[in-house]
Write a protein that binds this DNA or RNA. Sequence first.
DNA 1: CGGTATCCATAGGGATACTG
DNA 2: CAGTATCCCTATGGATACCG
Lengths: 124, 124
Amino acid sequence: MKKKEHKECTSALLPVRDTLDVIGGKWKLLILISIWEGNKHFREIERSIPKLSTKVLSKELKDLEANQLITRAVLNGFPVRTEYKPTQHSKTLKKVILELHNWGINHRKQIFSDKSEKDNLSVV
Amino acid sequence: MKKKEHKECTSALLPVRDTLDVIGGKWKLLILISIWEGNKHFREIERSIPKLSTKVLSKELKDLEANQLITRAVLNGFPVRTEYKPTQHSKTLKKVILELHNWGINHRKQIFSDKSEKDNLSVV
DNA sequence: CGGTATCCATAGGGATACTG
DNA sequence: CAGTATCCCTATGGATACCG
């Protein structure tokens, strides 16, 4: 029955939700990419991403660490320095990101190709 | 240099952002799935998704329509009835969703398996 | 039925200052 | 340097009532 199907589908949706929670939001991917690129330190990452505040960066880094996409190490010395690095696990995301990328490209084509017939399409 | 690379990466991120905007959020996929399942009418969709308010559904349907994932048709008669249907374009999302699904499954394994050790983060 | 309009609560984000 | 703490503010969402 329809209801049952819907229940099945929406529970099958849970892992999808998980993934979206992990990489969704305004900053997560930007930060991850910054770290992939080799930025290691808090300020360094912060500077590499315009408009990103320390509070948000701090929170996002914790999330990324909790999801084992990055590691955090505190180095000896003064002033304190920390080092963030991507994990192997984080690299499994690249395929997903590629898929999202491809669909996004294709979606734009779709939206714009149809523009000739319908002017008033407010898009994305 | 690093800055340039980051610019390149983040601009390559735009299509990814587009995709996340299209399917992200709390309700978009639930609504799309409901429609994929054959629910066509406003109330019908609303009832199929617990906790979804009319205001939000209304907005989300507009977004989905703007992104050409669904079509909206107003049927003759009284009271008014509308009919929402999935587009062909919407079906191209299924592959993306599958990818998100698979990663989500895998991610859970990763998170739960790794309690003991910190390194060895190899996953698929 | 298929929505808008309205009011209100809340979470989250920006800016800034501050601590170890 | 690496963050917390604080204040503030707006965007979103729930609940409800109402209109064509």
